[in-house]
Simulated assay, not measured.
Amino acid sequence: MSTPAAGAGRVVVVTGGTRGIGLGLAHALLARGCKVVICGRSDAAVTKALAELDGDVTGLATDVTDRAAVQALWDHAVATFGRVDVWINNAGISAARGPFAEVPEATVADVLRTNVLGAYNGSAVAQAAMAGQPGGGWIWNMEGFGSRGEHQPGMEPYGASKRAVSHLTEALVRETKGTPVKVGFLSPGIVATDLLVGDYDGRPDEFEKVKKIFNILGDRVETVTPWLADGVLAATKHGARVAWLTKPKAMGRFMTAAFRKRDIFADTPTPAAAGAR
């Protein structure tokens, strides 16, 4: 476990930092001595999250699909803390699972805009500004299901968005080579959040079927995010990947599953029944 000295006053922006993995990262980074800036979709969400966080932290309601709003988030961070050392594009949404042709166009557009355009805007704003500040900085983009070509029925919008984020991150790694800006990939694996559970809204029976696998391979936010924070703060190599659920770890989990009883969803609301939303 890192000590507060690990962060040493580094300024970190976490988009989507008001809930789930983003909020967990904010907690972990503050515990490691960082100064943290979070954003969420609304003033209410940001205010609620700030009340839960302890340390040098500020926040701003930000629409990550709007480049000007993302620039305003950068400006807020610099006005508050003087610079930004690390920018984590964590903001993301998913969609309730459903047959390919039945997912509403507006839902697909929402997922793609938030996950892909949001990461693109954050990367573009951070790259441009970090290139001109002393010491440069780090940009991290969040991987997820689909990043490496995984397929599963009902996951098309989210999987496509994460595949696209991986592509743009790989492109950014190449473009920033030899510059003061470094880029990395963050891969949290399967984490018990309302985002994951929300994929099964309207299909609680289906959730019960996959819950066993999630309990073998998945983890809770408070388990994964301190480890991710340590990886972000320790990284030195451009193009680094900080991945929690590796193939050897997954194989080990399956081999020992019969001897380990786990419920990572103990405090997480169950999926809504059909028509309940």
Results as ranks from 00 to 15, higher is better:
4 P>D: 06
8 A>G: 13
11 V>Y: 04
12 V>G: 02
24 G>T: 01
32 R>P: 04
34 C>D: 04
35 K>V: 07
38 I>G: 00
47 T>S: 15
47 T>G: 10
47 T>V: 13
56 D>M: 14
57 V>P: 03
58 T>F: 06
66 D>H: 11
67 R>Q: 12
69 A>Y: 10
79 A>S: 11
83 R>N: 11
87 W>E: 06
89 N>M: 08
91 A>Y: 01
93 I>M: 10
94 S>T: 15
97 R>L: 12
99 P>G: 02
99 P>N: 06
102 E>C: 04
105 E>C: 05
105 E>S: 09
110 D>P: 10
113 R>T: 09
115 N>C: 06
119 A>C: 13
125 V>M: 05
133 Q>V: 00
142 M>P: 03
143 E>G: 01
147 S>E: 05
159 G>T: 05
159 G>P: 06
160 A>Y: 13
161 S>I: 13
166 S>T: 15
166 S>G: 15
169 T>Q: 10
172 L>K: 08
172 L>V: 05
174 R>I: 13
175 E>Q: 14
190 I>H: 05
192 A>P: 05
215 N>A: 07
220 R>C: 03
221 V>H: 01
223 T>R: 08
226 P>L: 13
227 W>K: 13
230 D>F: 01
245 L>M: 06
250 A>Q: 11
254 F>L: 12
257 A>D: 08
257 A>H: 06
265 F>C: 06
269 P>S: 03
274 A>Y: 01
276 A>E: 14
277 R>H: 11
